[in-house]
Amino acid sequence: MLDPALEHVLRGSLALLLASGAVQKARDFALFRAAVEGYELLPARLAGVAAALFAALEGALGAALLAPARFGLRPGALALAAALFALYAAAIAINLARGRREIDCGCGGPAAHVPLSGWLLARNAILVAMALACLAGVAQRALGLVDALTIAGGVAALALIWTAVHGLLAHAAALARMQEDV
């Protein structure tokens, strides 16, 4: 049983991640489409459709995770989000197995070229675990003012850590390329 404050932190973070991912993908759709094509798992004709579906699905899931519990959308959205992260992980794992590390992961946005690596698999495993933990059941407890602090602080801290880790992954790739050049 998960403490309700922790569940709020995990679910809020996943919603923030999915929503910001959807906005980023929609804003730079051409790049995301090219990244989907880069994975070479779908016929090129379908890549555009798949990219649009992924972006829309992320946005919808982000909204559904934040919807009030009485709508009953949360369990389905959590399960779908876990499946989506697992699907991304599978696509990354297949291309890592093919030895195609250089392709863009399609997750860093336009500013950073994040190539594929084992780190992304670990990252996605954590995301799947977060979604499943929320699904596993939540203890009943009245939430107070301190919990609001925990939830806001927790979501903000996770978002900062996420940004920092992604930055480091992009820089690690840039650094590796630079050492190749020398």
């Binding site: 950073a112 850590i161 940004t163 920092a164 930055g167 480091l168 992009a170 820089h171 840039a174 630079m178």
Partner: peptide, 24 residues
Amino acid sequence: VLALGAVVVALVRQIGVLHERVRP
């Protein structure tokens, strides 16, 4: 914790700026 998180993100940004400066 949040202040330290902000500092870490700022440091990562600075590494990015340094890369921009030296990158071909």
